[in-house]
Simulated assay, not measured.
Amino acid sequence: MFFEAKNLKIYYKTKKGFVKAVDNISLNIEKGQTVGLVGESGCGKSTFGQGLLKILPPTTYYDGSVKIENQELINLTEDKMRKIRGKKIGMIFQDPMTSLNPVMKIEKLFYETLKTHEPEITKEEARKRTAKVLEKVGIEPERMKEYSFQFSGGMRQRVMIALTLVLNPILVIADEPTTSLDVIVQAQIMKLLNELRKEYDMSMILITHDLGVVAEMADKICVMYGGHIVEEAKSEDLYYKPKHPYTKLLLQSIPNTNINDLDLKYIYGSPPDLSNPPIGCRFVDRCPYKKEICKLKEPPVVEVDESKVKCWLYSEVKQ
């Protein structure tokens, strides 16, 4: 197995106790596969992505297993994790303006990144590799002499992508890579990411709110709610044959361009408090199909038509 997270728990320690941001998640990724991670704000998507790199606050509690190419990550020391970050697992953050150092020229950002993982590299070699990867993302190599604030939002995101790819990681986590960009630039960035993923033969975890973004890019989509993955399915199956009530409502809430159906649909209620989540199903208070058992016991993960669903509605299928 290329990548495997098994029974992963990531809890934030607070004065009131633990916030169960990621609670007992299991996920497999094949080599070269793109997995979309979608859901409402606060469901644990970004925590999952950043938790894989262990870049969360030092008081964060981890449990379970995360393996990449059979190497366990959860119990690694900070020194060993530094060798994993960037080299094996790269990350593209939401806002490039806060991720790129504004007082360092682009050239120096790349040199320091390369020097950290390849101490023997010379400045000339680093410059050549920087120029090559910048060309891949559509930026003229001459611009490496400039600062990040001299670039537009879309160009800064291209620099972030190039900075991630310069070390040739085997897995890239793209956390809302188009959030701060306009629609036209969003499409360009997503197309670029898809092309580079194929060219570099890397796997990708695409974290987003936008179901339209993952529709064309992801091979598999995982829907998160309240710290759980409530549905995992092939992209086509998820859009045309959704199983979990939350997935169905999430798809219905996408604005419809059909002139005969202009009513805006939404999901009633609010997400659960993850410092004190419900005993049973996390979606029970908002679910139109809830049963008595949903309030009393956490639902099992059931396989239905090649999809995995965490819901009591399908418990009889398993039996």
Rank of each mutant, 00 (worst) to 15 (best):
56 L>S: 11
18 F>M: 13
10 I>N: 06
29 I>T: 02
14 T>P: 06
36 G>W: 00
41 S>L: 06
20 K>D: 03
18 F>G: 01
14 T>M: 05
43 C>P: 02
43 C>I: 05
26 S>V: 10
35 V>W: 02
29 I>L: 13
17 G>I: 08
26 S>Q: 14
8 L>N: 06
29 I>Y: 01
47 T>P: 05
12 Y>L: 11
50 Q>H: 09
43 C>G: 03
14 T>V: 10
46 S>K: 04
8 L>V: 08
26 S>G: 13
32 G>T: 04
29 I>H: 03
34 T>N: 06
52 L>T: 15
38 V>L: 12
17 G>P: 08
50 Q>D: 00
16 K>R: 15
49 G>R: 06
10 I>P: 06
16 K>Q: 15
35 V>F: 00
28 N>C: 08
32 G>L: 04
9 K>E: 07
9 K>H: 05
27 L>W: 12
18 F>E: 15
14 T>D: 01
25 I>T: 09
12 Y>R: 12
11 Y>D: 04
22 V>N: 08
23 D>W: 05
35 V>R: 01
53 L>D: 12
16 K>E: 15
12 Y>T: 09
29 I>G: 03
29 I>R: 01
33 Q>N: 04
33 Q>E: 15
40 E>W: 13
21 A>T: 07
36 G>D: 13
53 L>T: 13
56 L>F: 05
53 L>Y: 13
21 A>C: 06
25 I>Y: 07
25 I>A: 09
49 G>H: 02
42 G>S: 12
45 K>F: 00
48 F>A: 02
31 K>T: 09
9 K>R: 05
53 L>A: 14
40 E>Y: 09
13 K>R: 15
17 G>E: 12
24 N>V: 11
8 L>S: 00
29 I>K: 02
13 K>F: 03
12 Y>C: 10
48 F>C: 05
36 G>H: 09
41 S>H: 12
15 K>S: 14
51 G>W: 01
37 L>H: 03
37 L>M: 13
37 L>Q: 04
12 Y>E: 04
19 V>K: 09
27 L>M: 14
22 V>P: 05
29 I>M: 11
31 K>G: 02
30 E>F: 10
36 G>P: 11
42 G>F: 08
45 K>L: 00
41 S>C: 11
8 L>W: 01
33 Q>Y: 02
38 V>Y: 06
32 G>S: 07
42 G>K: 08
48 F>H: 03
10 I>W: 11
36 G>K: 04
52 L>K: 11
33 Q>P: 03
9 K>A: 00
25 I>E: 12
42 G>Q: 11
24 N>I: 07
41 S>N: 12
29 I>D: 01
17 G>Y: 08
55 I>K: 06
55 I>G: 10
55 I>N: 10
41 S>I: 10
34 T>L: 04
30 E>V: 00
24 N>W: 13
43 C>A: 13
31 K>F: 08
30 E>I: 01
